[in-house]
């Protein structure tokens, strides 16, 4: 369970108590049969939807996430919306936009630079 500041701002930590009660496992402990553990964690990087939960390698968040977690039916949380804002920035952005596996910046730099860049040999 995420207990980071963004999730705290969303629900003041209430979800952790709900999950602990639903699972019958106290935070930071393991069930008697060893099958279920409940760990509070700092941030799961789903601050746009919180509260965020993680079951195995599935990150879920937002309305219904706690119910899905207790039902063992977590679904992948939606990705955040993205947008570029500013007249001086290309419409697709510099850091947002599509990933380019051709590495054009590296190709250009290698074409115009001396070998070994700036480093002493």
């Amino acid at each position: 369970m995420c207990t980071g500041t963004a999730c705290w701002a969303a629900e003041r930590g209430a979800a952790l108590g709900t999950v602990a009660a639903g699972l019958g496992v106290a935070p930071a402990s393991i069930s008697d049969d060893g099958a279920t553990s409940l760990a509070p964690t700092v941030c799961l990087g789903l601050c746009h939807v919180g509260p965020a939960v993680r079951d195995g390698d599935v990150l879920d968040a937002g309305p219904g996430a706690v119910d899905r977690l207790l039902a063992g039916a977590c679904t992948r949380a939606p990705a955040p919306a993205t947008a570029v804002h500013g007249a001086a920035i290309p419409p697709d952005g510099v850091l947002l936009g599509a990933d380019d596996p051709a590495w054009p910046g590296l190709r250009h730099a290698l074409a115009i630079s001396a070998p070994n860049g700036c480093a002493r040999p």
């Binding site: 701002a9 969303a10 601050c47 939807v49 919180g50 993205t82």
Partner: peptide, 19 residues
């Protein structure tokens, strides 16, 4: 540019690239 990210309390939380 700077990426900023907004939390769940916003109407349209997300990741924005701004000057």
């Amino acid at each position: 540019t700077k990426l900023v990210c907004l939390n769940q309390r916003f109407v349209t939380p997300g990741l924005y690239e701004v000057s």
